[in-house]
């Protein structure tokens, strides 16, 4: 296997790991079922995907990742297909389209891009579910009890894990062309 294929396998493996961690984190640590109205949704896969999207230049590969992991996420966690499946590739193309504006990746940029994409994704899911009557939560409840806590938790986690995740995704994408 050449180095490029190996890097791609590595990327897929780490996104998958983050995919499972989302469900397990929710199950093991953020599992408020009896009381409490605050809902925190761990979005580690999105974290991984945003960081990789900032570094991968191949748009076709990005769309492929978006659709594959979107379908997986929808089918395994949501039971209805069409939320992540559509929003994730859209988001990745959007980031890819505008990332030339950023001169150099740094923590501030990436945190704010993650913030924006998380907001976009969660609001998109809320709108679609509301449209299909999967939820009856009002907009204010959504913002106060779901979006707010989710954003806060995930931004803090990304802030803490920024250096390892950034180095990891750097390593997963960059390779020197001469050593095959």
């Amino acid at each position: 296997m050449n180095i490029k294929a190996r890097k791609i396998v590595g990327q897929i493996l780490f996104i998958l790991l983050a995919f499972y961690l989302d469900g397990l984190m929710k199950w093991a640590f953020l599992n408020n079922m009896n009381r409490g109205t605050v809902v925190i949704l761990p979005q580690l896969m999105l974290m991984m995907i945003v960081m990789l999207t900032m570094r991968i230049d191949n748009r076709r590969q990005l769309i492929f990742y978006g659709i594959v992991f979107g379908v997986l996420y929808d089918s395994y966690y949501y039971g209805i297909i069409g939320l992540y499946t559509v929003l994730l590739p859209l988001l990745m193309v959007g980031i890819d389209h505008f990332k030339f504006l950023l001169v150099k990746n740094n923590m501030g940029y990436e945190l704010s891009i993650y913030f924006l994409s998380l907001t976009f994704l969660q609001s998109g899911i809320y709108l679609l579910e509301r449209l299909l009557q999967q939820t009856s939560a009002s907009v204010f409840d959504f913002i106060t009890y779901t979006l707010g806590p989710t954003l806060l938790w995930n931004i803090v986690v990304l802030f803490i894990l920024y250096i390892p995740i950034a180095n990891l995704s750097e390593w997963l994408v960059k390779y020197r062309r001469d050593n095959k």
């Binding site: 499972y20 989302d22 469900g23 929710k26 199950w27 761990p42 966690y77 899911i125």
Partner: peptide, 15 residues
């Protein structure tokens, strides 16, 4: 045995 819980606010599913 439970494998995971959906990270979703309105579909609270256990797998």
């Amino acid at each position: 045995s439970v494998l995971s819980r959906s990270p979703s606010s309105w579909q609270s599913y256990l797998t």
